[in-house]
């Protein structure tokens, strides 16, 4: 019993991270219909930025945990946001009128560039950061126990806070309205006076910022990363986005949590060898019965 509950806790934290990264995929897909393959690597860059920020803070003698966390978050989100903007400007905007496949190839190229640029500038070493927050809450259940570390609580809290802020931005602010309008009909939106290029840029910045949030949280928790971490987590997050219905914000979060939970439960109760086989099979099965994902709008098609 305690084991199952513990696996649920594991899956929930993992899933909320997937969800945060999935937002970047889903927003970009929603607005320009492209799979941003470089998004996983933007997350990877944010891991490096986290470590750099922490190294800088400790160099200047700042020790207090809240200040470091807060400073790291701001620094990482700003710089990662700049990455999102630059990537869109350099690799995607010139291809605005080309076929979606060309943009996809450009994105794959961008992903290779990011990985290797980081590898060259930071070396191929495994990187780590010192442990920042230790300790855990422990619940005794029967003979066993379920525990959740403070760091994991912080991840859950921050992830849902990030989601909340994002939902507010999209639903209530002017920028959000412009995003939604552009998503609905880009041509119409620009006729109505919306600078769609700028909206698309800001979507990339928001997506990158969410990836940065995930990057900071994961890096603080696991403490380990290398230039290759973006790939696997990127594929998983993309799977989560599709699972939840690509283009849908709550779908991304839901897909992330479902994917995280199912991975943890399958690995924990059956076999971790076939964990990934299970997640991908789950995806295939859901898509066969619900071809637009869980919360996606079914495409209307007339013959």
């Amino acid at each position: 019993m305690d084991i199952v509950l513990q696996q649920l806790v594991n899956g929930l934290t993992l899933g909320s991270v997937y969800g945060l990264i999935a937002i970047g995929y889903t927003m970009v897909y929603g607005i320009i219909g492209m799979i941003n393959f470089a998004h996983g690597d933007v997350y990877m860059v944010s891991s490096y930025l986290t470590a750099i920020a922490i190294a800088l803070f400790s160099f200047f003698g700042l020790e207090s945990f809240p200040i470091i966390i807060f400073g790291t978050l701001i620094f990482t989100i700003i710089v990662t946001g700049a990455y999102g903007w630059v990537i869109e400007r350099v690799a995607y905007r010139p291809l605005r009128n080309s076929s979606r496949l060309s943009v996809l190839i450009s994105a794959i190229g961008m992903s290779l560039i990011l990985q290797n640029y980081v590898q060259i500038s930071q070396g191929a070493r495994q990187q780590g950061i010192p442990t920042m927050l230790t300790g855990a809450i422990r619940f005794d259940i029967g003979d066993g126990f379920v525990q959740i570390t403070y760091m994991k609580l912080f991840i859950l809290f921050a992830a849902f806070l990030g989601m909340g802020v994002l939902t507010y931005i999209i639903q209530k602010t002017k920028l959000g309205r412009m995003c939604r309008a552009t998503q609905q009909d880009r041509k119409m939106a620009s006729i109505l006076g919306i600078n769609t290029d700028r909206v698309i840029s800001s979507v990339f910045v928001i997506g990158a910022a969410m990836a940065a949030l995930a990057g900071v949280l994961v890096t603080l928790d696991y403490g380990a990363f290398d230039f290759y971490v973006g790939f696997i987590i990127g594929i998983k997050a993309f799977t989560a986005a599709v699972l939840g219905g690509i283009g849908s914000l709550p779908g991304a979060m839901l897909g992330g949590v479902i994917l995280g939970l199912s991975e943890a439960l399958f690995a924990g109760l059956i076999s971790s060898d076939y964990k990934d086989v299970f997640s991908f099979s789950l995806l295939v099965i859901i898509l066969i019965f619900r071809p637009s994902g869980l919360l996606g709008k079914p495409e209307v098609e007339k013959v």
């Binding site: 084991i3 513990q6 696996q7 594991n10 899956g11 934290t13 993992l14 994961v218 696991y222 380990a224 990363f225 290759y228 971490v229 790939f231 696997i232 987590i233 991975e263 943890a264 439960l265 690995a267 924990g268 076999s271 971790s272 060898d273 964990k275 990934d276």
Partner: peptide, 20 residues
Amino acid sequence: YEGLTRGEKDFNAVVTKIRS
């Protein structure tokens, strides 16, 4: 006797299994 996926960093599920 279990395999992990190389490149991942989250092994909490396996760790819980070791505990079990």
